[in-house]
Design a protein around this nucleic acid. Structure first.
Length: 425
RNA sequence: GGAGAGGUGGCUGAGUGGCCGAAAGCGACGGUUUGCUAAACCGUUGUACCGGGUAAACUGGUACCGGGGGUUCGAAUCCCCCCCUCUCCGCCA
C-alpha cells in the first residue's frame, strides 16, 4: 500500500512512477479527491467533538452544584447528531479510500529497465553452460513417467489435473531437495527456519498483497474465512504483522511449505508436466530490513538463491524485471531462470523482490530506528527455490541417452547415496 | 462441541458513568552521587490521525483500555454481537 501522504505531497512523482508500470492515473487522482474531502470532514468533526468534550465536562460540574443543565444537554444532543452524521460520512470515505489504496500497486524503482511486458526484462548475468546432447533431449514429462518418479495420472485421479504425485525416488528427491536447500540457508546464509501454517486468514493475505486483487488465484475455505497459501511468503512475512519488531534488523527467515495456486487465468497453458501446477513445494527466504540497506539485502538475497543452483551445477540466468513486469507489491525484482533442455526454454524458479515499505505498511510491520522513532521496515523475499521446476531442470539437464538421469553429487548424502534415477527393470 | 473465568500502556496490575490517556510497581532512557559496578534519589517514558510551524524540534486538537455496534450531554466503566486466551468436560492424530 502506498502512503496516502506520498500521493498527497508527491502526486506527480507517483503518477509518473505508476505510468512506468502502465497504470493509468485515474485511481490515484480519485484517491487524492476523496482524501481532500475526508480531511475537511475530519477537521470539522474533531472541532465539534472538542466542543462536546468541553461542554460535557461543564455539565458534570454544574450538575454537582445542582444547576439546571437541560439547555446545554439539549444543544449537545444536536451536536452529537451532527457528529454522528459526519462520522458516518467519514467512515464511508475511509472505506472507499482504503479499498482504492489496496488496489494501487507499488511504484517501481526508478533504476529499472523500461518496458511494459516481459520483453523489456534485462539479463544481468548467466551462470554455467547449457548442456549439449548427442540425442534429442526428452521432456521431463516423458522422463518422469518412464522412470516412474511422478505418476501424473494417479495425481489427476486423486485430486485433479495439476496435482502431481511423486513416487519412490521421485518422492525421496522432493524430501532431499527440501532438506538440502533449508540446510544451506540455515547453516551458510544465516536464516532462521520456520515451519508455518499453510492455511491463513484474510488479514494475512491482505498484508502481503494477495488480497483483494488476487482472490481468484487462491484456494479458499469460505466457511472459516481461510485461504491456502500460494507461497510461504504469506505466513512468514505475516510473522511480524501488527508488531513493532524489537529484535535487531535485518532478520532472515526461511521456510519450506507446499504452495497452492488455482492458476485461474492460465487455463490451457503448460498443462502437461510440472511446469505449471496447482500444488508444488517451495523453500522461501524472507527478510525484514532497515530501509537504508534493503537494496544491498536484495542483492545478497539473489546470491543466496543462486548458491543453491550453483551447488546443483545447473545453468541459469538472472533477469532484472522491467518496470511493467514486476509483481503488484514489488519495487524491484530479479527472476532466476533455469535452462530446461527438454523445453528448449528458460524456466523461472525464483523471484527475488524488494517490496520496500509496501507490504510493511499494509501489514503494520514496524521497527524503532536509531533515534527511537517507529517506522515501517522494508520486506523482501525470494524463492530459494521452487521445487517442481527445479525437478524439471534436474531431469532434463541430467538425462542420459537411455533415459536415466544423473543427479548432482551434492544430493547423494540426502538420498542415502543414490546418485542417479535408474530405469526400472 | 458443552460449561466457567478472563482480555487495560513494553510487562505486572488498579480502576464500575464525568476530576481517567488512565494509579502503583517493574523495566527502559536521561540526570545527581560514585575509583568502577551496584544501590539510592530526581526526571522522562505510547500510537495514529487532523491543524499550526522551515512536518526537524515544537505546538493545539481528536481518537485509541481485544474488535464492532448501542445507551448517555458524557463510556475503560452500562447493554448487545463477535474474536482471542485460560480451566474443566467431550471428541481426536
Amino acid at each position: 500500500m502506498l502512503d496516502i501522504k506520498r500521493i498527497r505531497d508527491q502526486y506527480d512523482a507517483v503518477v509518473v512512477g505508476l505510468a512506468a508500470r502502465g497504470v493509468k492515473p485515474d485511481g490515484v487522482s480519485a484517491i487524492r479527491d476523496i482524501d481532500l474531502e475526508r480531511r475537511q470532514m475530519v477537521t470539522e468533526v474533531e472541532s465539534l467533538k472538542g466542543v462536546r468534550n468541553r461542554v460535557s465536562k461543564e455539565i458534570g460540574l454544574r450538575r454537582k452544584r445542582g444547576d439546571d443543565t437541560a439547555e446545554a444537554e439539549a444543544s449537545m444532543r444536536q451536536v452529537g447528531d451532527q457528529i454522528g452524521a459526519l462520522d458516518e460520512r467519514i467512515r464511508k470515505a475511509d472505506e472507499r479510500l482504503q479499498a482504492m489504496l489496496l488496489m494501487i500497486p507499488n511504484i517501481p524503482h526508478p533504476g529499472l529497465p523500461k518496458g511494459l511486458d516481459a520483453s523489456g526484462n534485462q539479463v544481468v548475468r548467466t551462470w554455467g553452460t547449457v548442456p549439449t546432447f548427442n540425442f534429442m533431449p526428452r521432456s521431463h514429462v516423458e522422463l518422469a513417467e518412464k522412470l516412474g518418479v511422478v505418476d501424473f495420472a494417479r495425481g489427476t485421479k486423486i485430486s485433479g489435473a495439476g496435482f502431481p504425485l511423486y513416487v519412490g525416488l521421485g518422492a525421496r528427491l522432493q524430501r532431499a531437495l527440501i532438506q538440502f536447500m533449508l540446510d544451506i540457508h540455515v547453516r551458510d546464509h544465516g536464516y532462521t527456519e520456520l515451519w508455518p501454517p499453510v492455511v491463513v486468514n484474510a488479514a494475512s493475505m491482505t498484508g502481503t498483497g494477495q488480497l483483494p486483487k488476487m482472490k481468484d488465484d487462491m484456494y479458499a475455505i469460505p466457511e472459516d474465512d481461510l485461504y491456502l497459501i500460494p507461497t510461504a511468503e504469506v505466513p512468514v512475512t505475516n510473522y511480524y504483522r501488527d508488531e513493532v519488531i524489537s529484535s535487531p534488523l535485518p532478520i532472515y527467515l526461511t521456510a519450506y511449505t507446499p504452495c497452492f495456486r488455482r492458476e485461474a487465468g492460465a487455463a490451457g497453458r503448460d498443462t502437461r508436466g510440472l511446469i505449471r501446477v496447482h500444488q508444488f513445494d517451495k523453500v522461501e527466504m524472507v527478510k525484514f530490513t532497515d530501509p537504508a540497506t534493503s537494496y544491498e539485502e536484495l542483492e545478497s538475497l539473489v546470491l543466496n538463491a543462486e548458491d543453491i543452483l550453483q551447488r546443483l551445477q545447473l545453468p541459469y540466468r538472472v533477469l532484472m524485471l522491467c518496470s511493467g513486469d514486476i509483481s503488484f507489491a514489488a519495487a524491484k525484482c530479479y527472476d532466476i531462470e533455469l535452462w530446461a533442455p527438454g523445453q528448449n526454454a528458460w524456466l523461472e524458479v525464483s523471484s527475488c523482490s524488494n517490496f520496500e515499505d509496501f507490504q510493511a505498511r499494509r501489514a503494520g510491520i514496524r521497527y524503532r530506528d536509531a533515534k527511537g522513532k517507529i517506522n515501517f521496515v522494508h520486506t523482501l523475499n525470494g524463492s530459494g527455490v521452487a521445487l517442481a521446476r527445479l525437478v524439471v531442470a534436474l531431469l532434463e539437464n541430467g538425462q542420459q541417452a537411455d533415459g536415466s538421469v544423473l543427479l548432482p553429487a551434492v544430493l547423494a548424502p540426502y538420498l542415502g547415496g543414490v546418485d542417479r534415477l535408474p530405469l526400472p527393470h
